[in-house]
Design a protein around this nucleic acid. Structure first.
Lengths: 112, 112
DNA sequence: CGGTATCCAACGTGATACTG
DNA sequence: CAGTATCACGTTGGATACCG
């Protein structure tokens, strides 16, 4: 046998939650602040309206973000991290940092 | 404006590298040890032969793992983390830990 | 034993159009 | 402004069969 099966399952769980095309980025955008739908859409200008909504719904269903709709017209909806989603912050930081090294190093023959 | 564009790009880079269906798990399996192809295949018994090879190739192309082929018959190939891939270890640990909390907490109304 | 080559099904993303 | 519905498309994962 090899690795603890539990660890693998736990990792899978996290990967499933974070690995939507824009999910990680949405979470990063929401670190330390609350954004309206339109603000998110502006930040993620590359993601389509439709896709953005789907990913938000999934993140909400997974308990990572909170959706707060104000009963006004025109509609106003705010998204923020749940306490639960905030527990991902350090991981996101790690990812950003590693990505930075990866991009600057690209062909890191420099390890020799 | 909002978040630093660089941070977003860095995060994207990391997500692309880690978000293959089995990539994260492969990396986790290789933490602290070297495995032959068949051993990996046994560990990841749910992944198909073909898929496993594809993911390994991509991880290799991204510089995360090293492939060492011995010119013997029958063939013997060993996979291990590069120094570069090892820099992901702490992130993987974070993911495992968060996944554990997520699975045990599922409906964490308990935050109140 | 480890890898390649096709081919295909499933899913996720995104475009468009319409609603409250 | 925010969301739903429908459909089209590309990418990915996987099945199968065959090489070194």
């Amino acid at each position: 046998m090899g690795l603890d099966k539990e660890k693998v399952e736990n990792l899978k769980t996290t990967l499933e939650v974070v690995c939507g095309k824009w999910k990680g980025i949405i979470l990063l955008e929401l670190v330390g602040r609350t954004l309206r739908f339109n603000e998110l859409k502006t930040e993620l200008h590359e993601a389509s309206h439709q896709t953005l909504i789907k990913q938000l719904k999934e993140l909400e269903a997974d308990g990572l973000i909170e959706r707060k709709a104000y009963p006004v017209v025109p509609p106003k909806v705010e998204y923020s991290l749940t306490p639960y989603g905030r527990e991902l912050e350090s991981m996101l930081e790690d990812m950003v940092e590693w990505g930075m090294r990866h991009r600057s190093g690209e062909k890191q023959k420099e390890y020799s």
